[in-house]
């Protein structure tokens, strides 16, 4: 499998896109620091950008890579290689290269700005860990959608809709239901609703770490009251892990029964 990861990774390093994303994150990091003049504030602003943009980029790139590497996949399928290895390998190649762009692109400006001498270092590390998780989750979801749709226009459409739902619509529905049912005890509902959306979960996780109650919002507050800060972080990291494992498992299952 690692050979396939390596070949996918090499393939991506040759394509312009990895560098475009790297340059984008690099620019983003410098701009944020330039505007905030402060590492800790930079982390907060960056968080809001990352939890929306990283999923979008992973979704689009995942779908794009899957469709554009169909020939490569067809070639591999006729070789003595396990099917699950082929798809896991490609998935890890994509998610890995995206994560590398993210970590290097954002890490570089922050390190140059004196990250290692700053108390905000762990906040920043957590931000990157969350970003990597979002990459893993949304690349897997994108692969899953692409694998289920042979028509690439449809695949693109569904994948972007999925992102739109989790990044925007979900929060809207969630807030609406909080207002509609405000007379009822909503704590466990809010807790469940947060765990069921990786983007909300990432936001809560980072805010718990940053410990800014003003930004925590209702769900964050419920989360904190229910789990406490450290257990809350462990639980949310664990659930992010589950969020990664579930679509990857579905991907392997789907790949096993697909006709090419």
């Amino acid at each position: 499998m690692f050979k396939i990861v390596r070949y996918s990774f090499q393939d991506l390093l040759r394509s312009r896109w990895s560098y475009v994303y790297f340059a984008f994150y690099l620019l983003l990091g410098f701009v944020m620091l330039f505007l905030n003049h402060d590492l800790a504030k930079g982390v907060i602003t960056l968080m809001n950008v990352i939890i929306i943009l990283v999923p979008l980029i992973a979704t689009i790139f995942g779908v794009m890579y899957y469709y554009s590497s169909r020939e490569f996949t067809a070639l591999l399928l006729a070789q003595p290689i396990r099917r699950s290895r082929i798809f896991l390998g490609q998935y890890l190649g994509v998610a890995g290269s995206l994560s590398l762009s993210l970590v290097l692109g954002l890490g570089l400006p922050f390190v140059l700005y004196g990250l290692f001498r700053s108390p905000a270092i762990w906040d920043f590390v957590l931000l990157l860990v969350t970003g990597v998780f979002l990459n893993l989750i949304f690349t897997a979801l994108a692969f899953l959608v692409a694998l289920s749709n042979d028509n690439r226009i449809k695949g693109f459409g569904y994948a972007v809709l999925l992102w739109l739902f989790l990044a925007v619509v979900y929060d809207g529905i969630f807030l609406l239901s909080l207002i509609l049912f405000e007379e009822y005890p909503l704590d466990s509902f809010a807790l469940g609703a947060t765990l069921l959306n990786p983007i909300d979960l990432s936001r809560t996780l980072i805010l718990l770490k940053l410990d800014i109650s003003a930004l925590l919002g209702y769900t964050g507050a419920v989360f904190k009251a229910f789990f406490g800060t450290s257990l809350g972080m462990l639980v949310s990291l664990g659930v992010l892990g589950l969020w990664t494992a579930a679509p990857v498992a579905a991907l392997v299952r789907k790949a096993r029964h697909k006709d090419f």
């Binding site: 393939d11 040759r14 169909r70 020939e71 067809a74 070639l75 006729a78 003595p80 396990r82 099917r83």
Partner: peptide, 22 residues
């Protein structure tokens, strides 16, 4: 459900499609 047997097969697909940037 097996895969190792494919080492005994040489397959020439009908349409030759390859990863373009290799």
């Amino acid at each position: 459900g097996q895969w190792l047997y494919r080492k005994d097969l040489g397959y020439l697909p009908q349409i030759a499609e390859f990863p373009g940037n290799l």
